[in-house]
Nucleic acid binder design. Structure first.
Length: 347
DNA sequence: GATGCGTGGAA
DNA sequence: TTTCCAAGCAT
C-alpha cells in the first residue's frame, strides 16, 4: 500500500515543523488547559492576512497582558485597541473583544467547528483551524497557503475565486481523520516555506512526487488569480494640536466602523479611501505646515499633510489632551504614528 | 460574489 | 522605487 499524501506530509512535519509560540510540538497531546484554545484562537485571529513575523511580538504582548479569555474579556476597549495598534485590520481587535466576552459568559470556547463559526471574527477558515488545532477534530482547513498547495498538487487551473469549491473538495480528499490539526499546520508550513507563491522550492518538497503542477512544469503559475484593480491616490490633512508649549497633544477616537475604526488618532479633515479630505482646519489660529507622510493601504495610497498649532483654545468635538512624551504608548495606528513622528521631528 | 479593510517585508 | 502580498472576515 502506497503511503498517502497526508502520511508523507505528516512525516515531513514531524521533522520540519516551525516552532512557534502558539504551537505544540508535532504529535503532542492536547493540553487540558483552558488557556490552550485561547492561545490558538488568539493566534488565528492575529494571523489573518498577517505574517508570522509581524504577529509574534503582539502574541507575546497580549498573552502577557491577558493570559486567558476571562482576562481579555474584562479588559477595557481602549487598552485592547492600543495593544493592537500597528497590527492592522482593526475590526479584528473589535471582534476579538466581542468574541472574548461571549466566550467568557458561556464559560469557555465551544469545541465544534459549527459553533466556533458563529463567534465574531471567526469565518470558515478560523473555525476549522481552531476545531482542528485546539480540539483535535477532523476539519477541512483552507487558507491561502492550503489553496496554493492544493491547486498545485491537483493542477487546478480554474482562476480564483471560482476555483475555491474544487480546491476545498480536493483538500477534503487528502485531510486525514486523525491529526487534522497537524495536517493543516503542515500544509501551511509547506505553503509558507516551500510551496511559495513566486519561486517554489520543489526540490525540497515532500510532496513533489504527488504534485501534478510540478510534473507539468511551472507550478508557480498556480493558483491563477484575478487581476488587481489600481489603487486610488488620496490626500488628507492631520492636525497636531498642542497646548502648554507642545507638552500635550489633542487626540480623538475614530468612529467604531470603517478605516482605523475605534482607534485613537490625530484629528483630521475627513479624508477616506473614497475621497480626499476637505483641507479645512478645525479651529482658527496660526497654523504651521510640517510636511506630509505617505502611507499605503490595501485600497488607497494616501498623502497625509500634517499641520500644527499650539493653542489655549479647546478644539471642537470629543477628544482628550495626552502627554506628548508618551505619544508612542498612545496606541496610534501606524499612519498617525508616522504623522506624530513628523511633528516631533519639527516638520 | 465583490468590496472594504493595515501593515511591513521581500523581490 | 514600486509592486506584491501574508494563517480572512463582514457586509
Amino acid at each position: 500500500m502506497t503511503a498517502s499524501i497526508s502520511d508523507h506530509l505528516l512525516a515531513w512535519y514531524d521533522k520540519h515543523a516551525r516552532a512557534l509560540p502558539w504551537r505544540l510540538p508535532p504529535g503532542a497531546p492536547l493540553p487540558d488547559d483552558p488557556a490552550w484554545p485561547y492561545r490558538v484562537w488568539l493566534s488565528e485571529v492575529m494571523l489573518q492576512q498577517t505574517t508570522v513575523a509581524a504577529v509574534k511580538p503582539y502574541f507575546e504582548k497580549f498573552t502577557a497582558l491577558w493570559p486567558d479569555v476571562t482576562a481579555l474579556a474584562a479588559a477595557p476597549d481602549d487598552a485592547v485597541m492600543a495593544a493592537w495598534a500597528g497590527l492592522g485590520y482593526y475590526s479584528r481587535a473589535r471582534n476579538l473583544m466581542k468574541c472574548a466576552r461571549e466566550v467568557a459568559v458561556r464559560g469557555g470556547f465551544p469545541t465544534t467547528e459549527a459553533e466556533l463559526r458563529q463567534l465574531p471574527g471567526l469565518g470558515d477558515y478560523a473555525a476549522a483551524a481552531i476545531a482542528a488545532i485546539a480540539f483535535g477534530q477532523r476539519a477541512v482547513v483552507v487558507d491561502a497557503n492550503v489553496e496554493r498547495v492544493t491547486a498545485r498538487l491537483f493542477a487546478i487551473t480554474d482562476p480564483l475565486p471560482g476555483a475555491r469549491k474544487a480546491i476545498r473538495a480536493a483538500t477534503a480528499g487528502i485531510t486525514p481523520a486523525t491529526r487534522a490539526g497537524d495536517f493543516a499546520q503542515a500544509m501551511m508550513d509547506l505553503g509558507a516555506q516551500t510551496c511559495t507563491t513566486r519561486s517554489p522550492r520543489c526540490l525540497l518538497c515532500p510532496l513533489r512526487a504527488h504534485c501534478r503542477a510540478h510534473a507539468a512544469g511551472a507550478p508557480e503559475r498556480l493558483p491563477v488569480k484575478p487581476a488587481k484593480k489600481p489603487v486610488p491616490e488620496r490626500s488628507g490633512t492631520a492636525f497636531w494640536i498642542t497646548r502648554q508649549g507642545g507638552a500635550e497633544v489633542w487626540l480623538v477616537t475614530r468612529p467604531g466602523k470603517g478605516m482605523l475604526g475605534g482607534m485613537r488618532a490625530l484629528p483630521d479633515d475627513g479624508w477616506s479611501a473614497r475621497a480626499d479630505g476637505s483641507g479645512m482646519v478645525p479651529l482658527a489660529g496660526d497654523w504651521r505646515e510640517l510636511g506630509a507622510v505617505r502611507h499605503g493601504f490595501t485600497h488607497a495610497q494616501l498623502t497625509l499633510r500634517v499641520m500644527a498649532l499650539d493653542t489655549d483654545s479647546p478644539p471642537p468635538g470629543e477628544g482628550q489632551w495626552r502627554p506628548v512624551s508618551q505619544i508612542e504608548d498612545a496606541g496610534l495606528a501606524t499612519l498617525f504614528a508616522k504623522a506624530a513622528r513628523l511633528a516631533l521631528a519639527g516638520g
